[in-house]
């Protein structure tokens, strides 16, 4: 009987592991495995690093937004990473968005407002491709969730530009990046030391900016993560306690059954 139990347990564990991780293990990511970074948002107690996220917003705004849209991000969302209403209004007002149709039937433009989505740098996909040598800069709203090991991947990619190894042919207009699938990426290295100056005085090294923008994009991709984590802890504590109480209740209830008392005989 002991061996039977043992075999059972092993088989169950295997089934669980294979079942749960099968999909995750399944498909291949970039050519080179991304660097493993420590992120403040990972794990069940993970939180947003607000200072870094705010710097990341600056990086996105000054560098990435020249080519990459962020369609699911609205200026009002900035309040969730610690900006005041008047600052958000000022950020929004820096951009021009499409307004209503005027009385003459012509399209109008107006300054952005907090409720507006971040305007796309290009009018449409074809315009984006035309300006980028045929390549389409992807929308970054969900980029962290849309790549395997997204945070590490984006961080690695931003720091992964180097000279192509000998014999690795890079087509014209492409750049070598070991973390990108195939190694040839249309985007030129977007970050380099001192490409911008941080408002909070943090030295703007390439690595710092890459880390900050990943923090920002993680927030944009999963804005409720921190709330969800906190809710999760409360739910887990409640369920664990309830399970314990139910277990004791069950044990007490079942005691006479386990002792062999009858319930239906003689009724």
């Amino acid at each position: 009987m002991i061996t039977m139990k043992f075999v059972k347990n092993i088989a169950i564990a295997l089934a669980a592991v294979a079942g749960l991780s099968g999909a995750a293990l399944a498909s291949a990511g970039a050519d080179k495995h991304p660097m493993e970074m420590e992120w403040e948002f990972s794990g069940p107690f993970g939180k947003f690093d607000l200072a870094s996220t705010q710097r990341g917003w600056q990086v996105y705004k000054q560098v990435c937004s020249n080519c990459h849209a962020l369609k699911y991000f609205h200026f009002r969302n900035l309040s969730e990473i610690g900006y005041e209403e008047n600052m958000i209004k000022a950020f929004a007002a820096e951009y021009t968005v499409a307004g209503d149709i005027d009385d003459a039937g012509d399209p109008t433009e107006r300054a952005g407002r907090p409720e507006d989505a971040f305007p796309s740098p290009f009018a449409n996909e074809n315009a984006a491709r035309a300006s980028n040598g045929g390549a389409l800069p992807p929308d970054l709203s969900l980029i962290i969730k849309a790549r395997h090991d997204g945070a590490n991947y984006v961080f690695s990619l931003l720091n992964g530009y180097e000279d192509a190894p000998a014999g690795h042919e890079i087509p014209a207009g492409k750049h070598y990046n070991a973390y990108f699938k195939g190694g040839a990426i249309a985007m030129a290295a977007p970050l380099s030391d001192g490409v911008l100056e941080y408002e909070d005085g943090t030295p703007a090294t390439q690595e710092q900016m890459a880390k900050d923008v990943v923090n920002f994009l993680t927030f944009v991709g999963d804005p409720h993560m921190q709330t969800r984590h906190q809710l999760g802890v409360a739910i887990v504590l409640f369920l664990a306690f309830w399970a314990a109480v139910l277990f004791l209740s069950m044990k007490r209830l079942w005691k006479p059954v386990k002792e062999g008392k009858n319930f239906y005989e003689g009724k």
């Binding site: 309830w242 209740s249 007490r252 005691k255 006479p256």
Partner: peptide, 15 residues
Amino acid sequence: AEGGANRRDFLHVAA
């Protein structure tokens, strides 16, 4: 009742 498991037992009510 004989088995000592009372329906109104605190544990059952709590659960």
